[in-house]
Structures are given as structure tokens and as C-alpha cells.
């Protein structure tokens, strides 16, 4: 039982905080539940969109952490080049992730529209295309916003002596859930 207690002590607080952070978006979802019923494309795409942004947040977190640790290692050997290459590598991975987010948002839109047509008969193509900007804007905006938060926080957490992986990964998925649902709710309100 000592192992069970240890696991609960170390993980429970982070898990509870991450889960509760996700409910922020859920509140908006609950408030607009009748409106969501009329938008089957968004309903079908919502879990996948949340997942995708969360996944990209995890990739950014783990890449940033690796860059920080690698730079620390390199810093001991070549001190001067540190700042330039660190910034360049971070910029590069953000660009890769933004590019994937853009392509995947379009892919998700077409796939969810097809599935909505197959599962629900009353899907109007003209109004379906009005939801395309939501997919692109939420994917690009949140991933960019996450990358800003995660880089800043990553360096801060690292300087405080913690492993950024342990804090950034649950935070990235929770923030992705919260921001994405809030943005989707805002869109549904305007639709």
C-alpha cells in the first residue's frame, strides 16, 4: 500500500488541477448546449480538435524541455552560441507545429463534415463551410498562444529547479481544452 500512497501523493494534485482547469471550457459548453445540437459538424470535431491541440501542446512542451536540457549541456562546451541557436530551434519547432496545426485543421473540417453528412441528414453545405474559419483560427491561435505560454513558463520552471516536463505537459493539455472550448463557444454564439 505504500506504493499506492506514494502515487496518489505525487500525482493527485496535478491531475485534479488539470481536470478542473478543463471544466472552464465545459461551463461554456453546458451554457450553449442547445445551440451545439444544431451544429453536428462542431460536435463531431470537438473531441478530435481538443485532442489535436493538446497533442501539439505536449509536443511543444517536450521539445522545449529537450532544447533547454540540450542547450545546458552544450553551454558547458561552447558558451557563446547558446542564445542564438536556442531561439532558432524554438522558432523552428513552433513553425513546424503551426504548419501541422493548419493542415490538420483543414483535414479535420473535411472529415467531420463528411461524417456529419453521413450520420445526420440535415447538414447544409453552405453553413458547413462557415465553420471552416473556426477550425483554422482555433488551431493556429491556440497553438501559437500555447507556445508563448509554454516557452516562458518552461524557462521559469527550469530556473526554479523543477523538471519542466512534469508541469508543462498536464498544463498544455488542460489549457488547450479550456481555450479551445471557450473559443468554440464564442464562435457558436456568433454563428
Amino acid at each position: 500500500m505504500r506504493m499506492v500512497a506514494k502515487i496518489l501523493r505525487e500525482s493527485l494534485l496535478v491531475l485534479v488541477v488539470a481536470s478542473l482547469l478543463s471544466t472552464i471550457g465545459g461551463i461554456g459548453f453546458e451554457a450553449l448546449k442547445e445551440k451545439f445540437y444544431l451544429l453536428p459538424i462542431i460536435l463531431i470535431a470537438l473531441p478530435a480538435l481538443n485532442d489535436m491541440i493538446g497533442d501539439l501542446g505536449i509536443i511543444l512542451s517536450s521539445k522545449f524541455t529537450t532544447i533547454i536540457y540540450l542547450q545546458k549541456k552544450q553551454k558547458m562546451q561552447k558558451k557563446q552560441k547558446k542564445k542564438v541557436s536556442e531561439r532558432r530551434e524554438i522558432r523552428e519547432i513552433i513553425m513546424v507545429v503551426l504548419f501541422v496545426a493548419f493542415v490538420m485543421a483543414i483535414y479535420l473540417f473535411f472529415l467531420s463534415t463528411t461524417l456529419a453528412i453521413l450520420t445526420k441528414k440535415h447538414v447544409d453545405l453552405q453553413s458547413a463551410f462557415k465553420t471552416l474559419p473556426l477550425f483554422i483560427v482555433s488551431a493556429l491561435f491556440i497553438v501559437f498562444f500555447l507556445s508563448l505560454i509554454l516557452t516562458t513558463l518552461g524557462f521559469f520552471v527550469y530556473k526554479k529547479g523543477y523538471d519542466p516536463n512534469n508541469i508543462l505537459v498536464p498544463l498544455a493539455t488542460a489549457l488547450a481544452d479550456a481555450f479551445n472550448l471557450l473559443l468554440v463557444c464564442l464562435f457558436v454564439l456568433m454563428f
Binding site: M52, D55, V100, M104, L108
Partner: peptide, 28 residues
């Protein structure tokens, strides 16, 4: 290599993620 790995992992994740969405829409 980064682009390719992230892209293909996301294609699989998003495609299967839509199964959850279908359940949500059907049992809404």
C-alpha cells in the same frame, strides 16, 4: 523528420478522435 513524425502521428490521432465525436453527436 520532425514534420513527418508529428504530421503522421496527428493524422492517426485526429482520425480516431473523430470516433469519439460521432458518439457524442449520436448520443447528444
Amino acid at each position: 523528420k520532425d514534420l513527418k513524425e508529428i504530421f503522421f502521428a496527428e493524422v492517426i490521432s485526429v482520425t480516431f478522435g473523430l470516433v469519439t465525436g460521432i458518439f457524442l453527436a449520436v448520443f447528444y
